[in-house]
Amino acid sequence: MPRAAINVNDGFYGNHTISYNVIFNTVRETSDHGPINTWDRQPFLRDAVQSDVPSLWQHTSYIHHNVLYNNYNSFYPIDHDDGSCFYEDSYNFQVYGGKKNYLGHSKMDHHEIYVYPDTKSSQGTGVCIADQAPSRGSSGWNEVWIENTCILYNSSVPYNIWYCDTANLFVPYLASNKIYIPSDTQVAFTCNVNGTSAQLSLDQWQSYGLDIGTTVQSAPNIETIIQWGREMLQNTI
């Protein structure tokens, strides 16, 4: 497939559901896309906040119970690009990619499994979360990443959160996640501390109120990961 398999342009109205698909071998002739691609560049008037009352807010769309392979030239399994907002992503088994937010807001990711996102490294994609260009009052607000599982293959750096600064934190809400890193490595959460980029341990990261309830453990074998995916997809609705 030359480009994305599923594309949602400008999220028109919202209230879309993308579920129970297996998508792979996309973006073979282009780049900077993914198996599922979304953007919100053009606002529309809708009635999402109150019936019959125009609003620029849209209904939430749902992406759940998909198996997504981020191979070939894909950047992210679910490429929420260019202002994407009002999405709930859950129970997806995503291989070779993590979560993306670029200039968007109001997205929740929960109960996802991300497998080896660090095997793809284009434009900072090789992490569990890439939160790009957040700006107070414009983008990056109301982003939620909770109760997810992310298994890193080589890296021990789970997040790429642009402009992270402990003196003025503006990051997604992070909690109760399970992060797995290679054995004999130490997790490193990258953020500015006192004006200097620092590599924080889990305890240090959590001391700022971030990722409360999150654990970091050594990565399991691939058979275990596949079993986790099978159980998630078969035993949840």
Rank of each mutant, 00 (worst) to 15 (best):
N101E: 05
N101D: 01
N101G: 03
N101T: 00
N101Y: 01
Y102V: 08
Y102I: 07
Y102A: 04
G104E: 00
G104S: 10
H105W: 07
H105L: 08
H105C: 06
H105T: 02
H105G: 00
S106N: 05
S106T: 04
S106E: 02
S106F: 00
S106D: 00
K107G: 01
M108C: 14
M108Y: 08
D109R: 11
D109L: 10
H110I: 05
H110T: 08
H110M: 06
H111P: 08
H111V: 07
H111S: 14
E112S: 06
E112T: 01
E112W: 00
I113S: 06
I113K: 05
I113E: 02
Y114R: 04
Y114L: 10
Y114T: 02
Y114G: 04
V115E: 06
V115A: 15
Y116D: 15
Y116A: 15
Y116F: 10
P117E: 14
P117Q: 14
P117N: 14
D118V: 05
D118W: 09
D118I: 07
D118K: 08
D118T: 03
K120C: 09
K120E: 05
K120A: 11
S121V: 09
S121C: 07
S121W: 08
S122Q: 10
S122G: 07
Q123L: 13
Q123H: 13
G124K: 08
T125P: 00
T125R: 12
T125C: 14
G126R: 03
G126H: 03
V127I: 06
C128P: 04
C128D: 04
I129S: 00
I129M: 12
I129W: 14
I129C: 00
A130K: 02
A130R: 03
A130Y: 03
D131R: 02
D131T: 01
Q132C: 06
Q132F: 09
Q132N: 08
A133G: 05
A133H: 04
A133K: 03
P134A: 01
P134K: 02
S135N: 12
S135E: 12
S135I: 11
R136L: 09
G137K: 04
G137S: 12
G137P: 00
S138L: 13
S138M: 11
S139Q: 04
G140E: 02
G140C: 02
G140V: 03
W141F: 15
W141M: 11
N142G: 14
N142Q: 10
N142C: 11
E143D: 11
E143R: 01
E143V: 02
V144C: 11
V144A: 14
V144L: 05
W145F: 10
I146P: 03
I146S: 03
E147S: 10
N148Y: 15
T149I: 12
T149A: 14
T149F: 07
C150H: 04
C150M: 07
C150S: 13
I151V: 12
I151L: 10
I151P: 04
I151K: 06
I151Y: 01
L152W: 04
L152D: 06
L152K: 03
L152E: 06
L152T: 02
Y153W: 01
Y153A: 14
Y153H: 13
N154L: 07
N154D: 15
S155T: 13
S155A: 10
S155C: 11
S155E: 00
S156R: 15
S156I: 07
S156G: 03
S156L: 09
V157I: 13
V157Q: 12
P158R: 15
